[in-house]
């Protein structure tokens, strides 16, 4: 099957001063990332803050242009931003992110916000839009009377549902969900996760699901990519990666998830903080925190290599570690 979305060797470099690392040095937020999402499938992206997950999501949506590499949607390059073709593509792809209050206009009612994309894209008559609103609210499990409320009059879970209703209004083929449940309580998180799974099953939507919550990603994703400092260090079938991660960083990340009862992976506690992305260590960027690093890792950057089970791992010791894990 041709992928719905494909990123090939995509890089994005920020030169702006920003936050702590305001030195003016370029930051490779996303570095040679390749990934694919097929219709009806979910790709999870995990990794610690600053590793480039959100940037990868914005590149996938064409909200940002890569400095190098290519992004293809339905087998064709993305349209140039601002053009009519680009706007038409926007309706096909939607972004859902963590902070629903930040994503909404406080002055508009829920109905106005949900219908906004239809108005922008000139879809349907006024009557058709009202009907669509009712369907959308029902699909995301919001009571019809909430339509006339303003965002601050809803609970966090209801706001996230409203944001989803808006994202679904144009019947998109691809949803990029950037930490969509991170701010929600467990019981509400479960409601939203179930809803996303149901919507995907009913509509065949492709999803990129970005989260630092590995258990949620494991549940919702078919495939998963683990990022470290702008690169994908391990990618493969979600259950396989979480059951037996190969890359030492992926192992540390998975083993760090607190669990009740016996753990399957021995806890690996990494020393040190993630490095400053503006000062990427030479060789394998993970080597300063890696307990398994060899001399070679300090100088030679490992490529993402496909292993015997189809998984891709960027580690000089991947073959050896995969055999040990199996």
């Amino acid at each position: 099957m041709t992928p719905l979305l494909e990123m090939q060797g995509v890089s994005r470099v920020y030169r702006a001063r920003r936050g702590l690392f305001g030195t003016g040095t370029p930051v490779r937020a996303v570095d040679h990332v390749s990934l694919q999402v097929a219709p009806g499938r979910t790709l999870g992206i995990v990794g610690e803050s600053g590793c480039g997950k959100s940037t990868a999501g914005r590149l996938a949506l064409g909200l940002e242009r890569p400095d190098s590499g290519a992004v293809q949607f339905r087998g064709a390059p993305m349209a140039a931003p601002g053009t009519a073709a680009w706007r038409a593509e926007r309706a096909q792809m939607q972004l859902v992110f963590q902070d629903p209050l930040g994503a909404m206009d406080r002055r508009l009612t829920i109905a106005q916000q949900v219908l906004e994309p239809l108005e922008i894209h000139g879809i349907g008559t006024a009557a058709e839009r009202r009907e669509r609103l009712a369907t959308l609210l029902r699909d995301v499990g919001l009571r019809a009377d909430l339509a006339e409320r303003h965002p601050h009059q809803l609970s966090g879970g209801q706001r996230q549902r409203a944001v989803l209703a808006r994202a679904l209004a144009t019947d998109p083929a691809l949803l990029v969900c950037d930490e969509p449940v991170s701010a929600l309580d467990v019981s509400i998180q479960a409601q939203i996760v179930n809803m996303l799974t149901d919507l995907q099953a009913a509509r065949g939507i492709a999803m990129i699901f970005i989260s630092h919550d590995l258990a949620v990603v494991r549940l919702i994703s078919h495939e998963v990519a683990v990022m470290y400092l702008g690169r994908i260090v391990e990618q493969g079938e979600a259950e396989a990666v979480f059951a037996a991660p190969i890359h030492p960083y992926a192992r540390a990340l998975v083993s760090a998830v607190p669990v009740s009862g016996p753990r399957r992976l021995e806890r690996i506690v990494l020393s040190g903080d993630p490095p400053n992305p503006a000062q990427r260590p030479p060789g394998c960027a993970f080597h300063p925190r890696c307990a398994l690093a060899l001399a070679r890792c300090r100088t030679e950057d490992p490529d993402l290599v496909t292993q015997s089970d189809g998984r891709m791992v960027a580690c000089h010791r991947a073959g050896e570690l995969a055999r040990a894990a199996a």
């Binding site: 879970g157 309580d185 019981s187 409601q191 996760v193 799974t197 979480f242």
Partner: peptide
């Protein structure tokens, strides 16, 4: 309900059991 609403890191993937309503 809290335990059933949490996804697990091991074992078969199962549908989460959400708790209806909110706090």
């Amino acid at each position: 309900g809290l335990l059933a609403a949490r996804p697990d890191m091991a074992g078969p993937r199962r549908r989460l059991e959400a708790i209806n309503g909110g706090v």
